[in-house]
Amino acid sequence: MIPCVITSVRLKPDTAAVAAVDLARTALVEEVDAADVGEHLGHLVEGERLVTHLFACTRPGYVGWRWSVTVARASRQKTVTVDEIVLIPGDEAIVAPAWVPYRERIQPGDLSPGDLLPVEDDDPRLVPTYSFGDDPLDTDAQAQIRTVAKDLGLGRVRTLSPEGHDLAAQRWYDGDQGPTAAIAQSAPDSCYSCGFLLRLNGSLSDTFGVCANGDANDDGRVVSLDHGCGAHSEVQLAKKHEPQPLPEHVVDTLSGDQLESF
Rank of each mutant, 00 (worst) to 15 (best):
C4E: 14
V5P: 04
I6V: 13
I6F: 13
V9A: 09
R10D: 14
L11Y: 04
P13C: 05
P13V: 01
D14V: 00
A17S: 12
A19D: 06
A19N: 15
D22K: 14
A24H: 03
A27Y: 07
L28V: 02
V32Q: 15
V32T: 09
D33F: 01
D33G: 10
D33W: 00
A35K: 14
A35S: 14
H40K: 04
H43C: 10
L44P: 00
V45W: 01
E46G: 10
E48V: 05
T52C: 13
H53G: 06
F55Q: 15
C57W: 07
T58K: 15
W65E: 11
S68D: 12
V69Q: 08
V71E: 12
A72S: 13
A74G: 15
R76V: 07
R76L: 12
D83A: 09
I85M: 02
V86G: 12
L87C: 15
I88E: 15
G90Y: 08
D91M: 01
P97Q: 07
A98P: 03
A98D: 06
V100C: 09
E104I: 00
Q107G: 00
D110Y: 05
D110W: 04
G114M: 03
G114S: 05
L117F: 09
P118Y: 04
D123F: 05
P124K: 13
R125K: 11
L126P: 02
T129I: 04
T129C: 09
Y130Q: 14
S131K: 13
F132Q: 08
F132A: 14
D135T: 11
A143H: 04
Q144D: 13
L152H: 13
L154T: 10
L154D: 08
S161H: 07
A169D: 05
A169V: 08
W172T: 11
Y173K: 01
D174P: 01
Q177F: 01
Q177A: 13
P179M: 07
P179G: 02
A181H: 08
I183N: 09
I183M: 03
A184S: 15
S186P: 03
P188A: 10
Y192Q: 12
C194F: 02
G195Y: 02
F196V: 01
L197V: 06
R199M: 04
N201P: 02
G202C: 07
G202K: 04
L204T: 10
L204E: 10
S205A: 14
D206Y: 06
F208S: 07
N213F: 03
D219C: 09
D219H: 12
G220S: 00
R221N: 14
R221V: 05
V223L: 03
V223K: 06
H227P: 01
H227Q: 02
H227C: 14
G228D: 07
H232I: 01
V235T: 14
V235G: 05
A238P: 03
K239H: 14
E242C: 09
P243E: 06
E248I: 00
H249I: 09
H249V: 12
V250N: 08
V251Y: 04
V251L: 07
Q258W: 08
L259N: 01
E260V: 10
S261D: 11
F262G: 13
